[in-house]
Amino acid sequence: MDLIHLRNVNRSYGRVRALRDVNLRLAPGTTGLVGNNGAGKSTLLKILLGLLAPDSGSGTILGCDIVAASSELRGRVGYMSEAAATVPVLKGVEFVTLAGDLYGMPHRDARRRAHEVLNYVGLGELRYRRLEEYSTGNLQRLKLAAALVHDPELLLLDEPTNGLDPAGRAGMLRLIEDLIRETDKSVILCTHLLGDVERLCEQVVVIDRGTVISSGTMGQLKQQIHNQYELAWQGASAPFLAALQTLGAEVTADGTPNRAKVLVPPDWSNAKFFEVARNEGVVLTQLSPEEENLERLFFRVTRSAPESAAVEPSDPQPDVAHGN
């Protein structure tokens, strides 16, 4: 059974189309949902959670209809929000117990389970502290505990490492990694940190301007990785570059004479450069490889500036409300 199956899902906010004809099939496992600011990640996550109804289209998660069975669905899904989302004055264990109560667990079970999951996420000793005294890292762990309290089949984690220092981030990733290894839970990780996705996820969905532009396993995504070279040569430029382009390379000239950056397909071998140079009567004077990483691949497929992906989209502020 598919974990998620969405068919032609659309969602607009006024005149802004947040999601356009999203079709998605995901198998159980760990999936990274990546995209730039305003790409539609959060909207998709909220539709998956049944908090927002799509304008059109349909879908199922864990076999439940995303609109008709949203309450039942939320009983099987654990959601860790990006926002602080704490309840003032409460202590850690009370907060997680409240989450259990809100999922519909019997109160005694919720309380016992709160102690268990707090211990699991490493907050056993801090459970009786008030939420105001928790650090950002511990708050993230606490929110993870609140998402785990009812032992869900699917975890939706919205920016779990957001705002953490390197040590906190490493700890959180290790915790999620342990959880994935130790249980058969499926996880959807919504993030702009591609390193997190690369480390944790088997599948990845890239979303841009409301459209799913790439989805598949991490291996399939990495097959799209191209290598880039910086070339310098002596001789006629135009026929040399045209010959490279004929073979599938993408050439970017920066204006300097006889220099260019060349993006080549994955099956390219360096010998081809020398072969083309020989055929076109050119002498190569520089051939410096620059391997494309996942981040560069992401920028290429979303065709956006690197700077724009550095900031995570925040939840919009209240004005006009829609949804649940």
Binding site: R74, A84, A85, T86, P88, L102
Partner: peptide, 12 residues
């Protein structure tokens, strides 16, 4: 403080 989604993302 954005706690409303905390409540409404549960079963209620």
């Amino acid at each position: 403080m954005g706690s409303l989604p905390f409540y409404l993302s549960r079963r209620i």
